[in-house]
C-alpha cells in the first residue's frame, strides 16, 4: 500500500517498569491513506493519544514499527525526529499552545522561521493562511487578546502553513463550546478536502467523530473497530 501516509505494524507501547507495566498499546496494526480524516476514539486509557503521539514522532514504540511518509520512525535519531515533526507534521493541541509573546501572524510565521524560510515569503504565506481561515483582521493581536475559538484557528493556521503531509489534532475541541467546535470542524473539513491534508484526531467528542471520514475505536490498547464513513456530517 504505497499511498499510506502512516503505516503501523505490531505497535506496542508499554509504560512503567517490569513490575507494574502499563500496556498502552498492544500490537496495533494500523494504516492511514493520504487524504483521509481519521478520528481515533475510545475511553480514557484506551491508547488513542498514545497512538497519536507515536504517529507524530513524539514517542517511540516499545515494539513494532511506525512509518510516516515512507520514513521508519524507529530508526530516526532525536534530531531527525525533530526535523520530521518540523517538516512533515502539523500539530493542533488541546490547549492551543500558542506562544503568548508573539502576535497571531508571528505565531504562524514562527514554524517557518524554524524551517529557515525568508521573512518576506513567510509573512506572505502566514497572512494568506490567516486570511483563508477568516482571521485576516486579527493577525497583529496576541493570543491573550483572542477568544478560544480564534486561538484554535490560529493554531490550525500554524499547523497547515508549512503544507504538512499529516495534521495531528489531540482533543482539538476540548476547550471549545459546541458552536466554536462546529466552526473548527468545518475548517478542518475544508483543509482536508481542498488541500488534501491527511488529518488524525484523537477525541472523546462525538461531534468530532461524526465529521471524520474514518472512525477507529480503541479499547485497552487494541483496535476494537475501524469503520469508514461514506458520508460524514457536512459542515454547518
Amino acid at each position: 500500500m504505497s499511498d499510506l501516509v502512516v503505516d503501523c505494524q505490531g505497535v506496542t507501547r508499554v509504560y512503567g517498569d517490569d513490575v507494574v507495566p502499563v500496556r498502552a498499546l498492544q500490537g496495533v496494526d494500523f494504516g492511514i491513506a493520504a487524504g483521509e480524516w481519521t478520528a481515533l476514539a475510545g475511553p480514557s486509557g484506551s491508547g488513542k493519544s498514545t497512538l497519536l503521539h507515536l504517529v507524530g514522532g513524539l514517542d517511540r514504540p516499545t515494539d513494532g514499527t511506525v512509518v510516516v511518509d515512507g520514513k521508519k520512525l524507529n530508526d530516526l535519531s532525536e534530531s531527525q525526529l525533530s526535523d520530521l515533526r518540523l517538516r512533515k507534521v502539523g500539530f493542533v493541541f488541546q490547549a492551543f499552545n500558542l506562544i503568548p509573546v508573539l502576535s497571531a501572524v508571528e505565531n504562524v510565521e514562527f514554524i517557518m522561521q524554524l524551517q529557515g524560510i525568508g521573512p518576506s515569503e513567510r509573512r506572505e504565506r502566514a497572512l494568506s493562511v490567516l486570511d483563508h481561515l477568516g482571521l485576516g483582521d486579527i493577525g497583529e493581536r496576541r493570543p491573550g487578546e483572542l477568544s478560544g475559538g480564534q486561538q484554535q484557528r490560529v493554531a490550525v493556521a500554524r499547523a497547515i502553513v508549512t503544507n504538512p503531509v499529516l495534521l495531528l489534532a489531540d482533543e482539538p475541541s476540548a476547550n471549545l463550546d459546541s458552536a466554536t467546535t462546529l466552526e473548527l470542524l468545518a475548517l478542518l473539513r475544508t483543509i482536508n478536502e481542498e488541500r488534501g491534508v491527511t488529518i488524525v484526531t484523537a477525541t472523546h467528542d462525538p461531534i468530532v467523530m461524526d465529521h471524520a471520514s474514518r472512525r477507529v475505536l480503541l479499547r485497552d490498547g487494541r483496535i476494537e473497530s475501524d469503520e469508514s464513513v461514506s458520508s460524514p456530517m457536512l459542515p454547518v
Binding site: 507524530g56 513524539l58 532525536e78 534530531s79 525533530s82 526535523d83 515533526r85 518540523l86 517538516r87 500539530f91 493541541f93 490547549a95 499552545n97 506562544i99 503568548p100 514554524i111 524554524l114 500554524r158
Partner: peptide, 14 residues
C-alpha cells in the same frame, strides 16, 4: 513547561 514542550513538539531542537 507547556510552551517549551510545544516548541519541541513542532520541531525546535534541544
Amino acid at each position: 513547561i507547556r510552551e517549551l514542550g510545544m516548541l519541541r513538539a513542532i520541531g525546535m531542537r534541544r
